[in-house]
Amino acid sequence: MEAEKKKLIPKSALIKAALNWENWVQTCYNYERMMGQSVVMTFLPVVKHLYPDNKEKQIDVLTRESEFFNVHTEFGSCILGMAISLEEDKAQGADIPNEFITNLKTSLMGPLAGVGDTIYQGVLIPILLALCIDITRAGNGNIWGAILYAVLMIAISYGLSIGNFMFGYNAGGDAIMDFLEKGILNKLLSAASIMGCMVMGGLIVNYVGIKCGLVINASGTMFNLQESLFDAVLPNILPLGATLGIYGLMSYKKWTSIRIILLIVIVSVIGGFFGILA
C-alpha cells in the first residue's frame, strides 16, 4: 500500500532535490531565514510533480517552505526528505494541515543541528584533520594528507547527505524521532570521543611546542630548568599544562577564542622577551 501511494515524484527528481540541498545550502546563508531559501531550492525540482497543472498550489508549497530554517547540512537533510514525502501525501489528498509540516520541521531542526554540529565539526573533522595534518608534515612534507582529507570529506558529506535525505523520505518523521531516541548517535559519540581524546593527547605532544628557556646560575653551575627539571620528571608537561589551562578558561570561565588568542600573544611577548619561554 505504501509503495502504491508514493508515485508522484520520479526518482531522478528526488536525487536532484537532494543534490540541490547539498550543493546550494549555504550560498545565500543569511540572518533572516538562514537556510529557508535553500529549502525552496530543494523543493524546486519536485514541486511540479506534486501539482502538475496547478500553479497556485505550487506557489503555496514554495511559500510555506521558504520560512526560517536552520540545521546541520548533512545530518538535517532527512528533514527535507521527510517534508517532501509529507507534501507528496498531501498532494494525493491526505489530510495534513500546513502547520503540521512546518511544526515537524521546526521541532526536528534543533536536535539534529545539535547532534550534527557536535559529531561533524566537534569530532569527525578534528580527528580526520589531525591525522591528515600529521601525514602532511611527516618527513620533509608531502601533499597526500591534504588530498586524502579533501577526497574523504567530499565523499562523506555527499554520501551522508543524500543517504540521509532518502532515509527521511522513505521512513518519515516518526522514524527520525525513533532514531534520535534510540541513542545510537550518543553511543557513537562516546566511542568517537575516546578515540578523539587519544588523538588529541598525541597531538599535544607532537604539535604544541613550548619550552622553558630559563637557565639559573646556582653558585657557578648552570641549571637549565627545561632539561634538568621538566625533561627529567615528565617531558611535554608544559604543552599539556598549557592546553588544559586554555581548556579550563574556555570551559569554566567561558572565555572566547579571541580572548585566548590575546592571552597567548601577551604571555608569549612577556615570556619571549625575558627568555622564560622558548
Binding site: G122, C197, V208, L244, Y247
Partner: peptide
C-alpha cells in the same frame, strides 16, 4: 595549536 586542541576538547 593548544587553542585548537582545547576547542576540540570542549566537545570530546
Amino acid at each position: 595549536p593548544a587553542l585548537g586542541i582545547a576547542i576540540t576538547l570542549q566537545y570530546i
